[in-house]
Amino acid sequence: MRKLLSRTAVAALSMAFVTEAMATEWNVSVWGKRRAFTEHVEKLAELVSEKTGGDFTLNISYGGLSKNRENLDGISIGAFEMAQFCAGYHRDKNPSITVLELPFLGVSSLEQEIELSMAVYQHPAAVEDLGRWNATLLMPSPLPQYNLVGLGDAPASLADFAGLSVRATGGIGAAMETVGAVPTSMSATEVRQAMDSGIVKAVAFAPHAHMSFGTIENGTWWTTNLNPGTVNCPVVVNTDAMNDLSDEHREALMSSVDEALAHYVDNYNNATMSAWGPALDERGITQVTFSDDEIAAFKKAAAAPAAAAWIEDNTKRGLPAQELYDMVTGMIASGS
């Protein structure tokens, strides 16, 4: 009887060990607080847990694992398994995907932004580029066109941007330079303090970020139709961690991406945008709309030179820059 009990106990302990070994727990590094920008990550965690009966969990940390500008570095050394970052934070580290941040590309919807991003992410050049950081591109964080919230007198024309200090990253910053603004790159979490201290007088963000990071709390004006472009902020996975997943867990993760993105788009288009107009009205923020002629002139001055410079610089890096640019602009022209 004693031998039987011992064997039973050993078997039970072995089964518990196997069950524990089969469970997978990933740490996910994002920043700020839960908002429209992170809803696909939250949904992904929910779906993966459901599909695996809780055997695969994503532990999402808002700033507790890394600074947002260091998330790609954290991925590269395996400090955590998944992270979100924005390409414009460190353009030299991920030049291939910055094609999506060029000004005035003419992207018309979040759905189109997703399609363009996934096409670039799956391009061999982008796979190799991010592979240098042991990172696998999983999904984008699609954002609408950026516009400015600013302090002081509202600009009456684009000429009024001359000398204005603006928080703007990537291609948006390059575009703002063409109208005489002085772009400054800083992370989203630093923006409110920079506005309060006068370091910047205006901030380029998508609507959700203006609400989440408090620029509308002291801003006095908002540009309705500047639309210089957007930023590209992928969610990436540590490649070693991805390769270590069981077939079941990998399928649970990959099969959840489309649903997570659909949830993100629905939330952004409905909950976020329905709150945006009232948020501006409640605070008495002046809405500035520029003439078609001014916007056309802005686009002419910014778009072609930025694209040409991007192609030249990244061709020198060894990237098929013209090919990437032609793919993106071709998809946009065809309505993809």
Rank of each mutant, 00 (worst) to 15 (best):
R2H: 12
L13E: 09
L13C: 13
L13N: 08
L13F: 11
V18K: 09
T19P: 01
A21Y: 08
W26K: 06
W31C: 05
K33H: 12
R34K: 11
H40C: 04
E42N: 11
A45Q: 00
E46S: 05
L47T: 11
T52H: 01
G53K: 08
D55W: 08
D55C: 04
D55I: 04
S61N: 04
N68Y: 07
R69K: 07
N71G: 07
G74R: 06
A83N: 08
Q84R: 10
Y89V: 04
R91H: 04
D92C: 06
K93F: 07
P95T: 08
V99P: 06
P103I: 15
P103S: 13
G106V: 00
L110Y: 10
L116W: 01
S117K: 02
P124F: 00
E128K: 15
E128L: 11
G131S: 07
N134G: 01
L137Y: 09
L137V: 11
M139A: 15
N147T: 06
L151I: 12
P155G: 07
S165M: 09
V166T: 04
R167P: 01
R167Q: 15
T169D: 15
G171C: 02
G171H: 04
G173F: 03
A181F: 00
Q193E: 12
M195F: 00
M195N: 05
A209Q: 13
A209T: 05
H210T: 03
T215Q: 08
N218Y: 12
T223E: 03
N227W: 05
V235T: 12
N238A: 08
T239E: 14
D240T: 15
A241W: 00
D244K: 15
D244H: 12
S246T: 15
H249N: 14
E251W: 03
L253P: 13
L253I: 14
S256T: 11
V257E: 03
L261I: 12
A262N: 09
H263P: 09
Y264S: 13
V265Q: 10
N269E: 15
N270T: 15
S274M: 06
E282K: 10
R283A: 08
Q287P: 01
S291W: 09
D293Q: 14
A296V: 14
K300W: 06
A303F: 05
A306C: 12
A307P: 01
K316A: 15
K316D: 02
L319G: 05
L319I: 10
A321H: 02
D326Q: 11
T329Q: 05
S334Y: 05
S334F: 02
S334V: 00
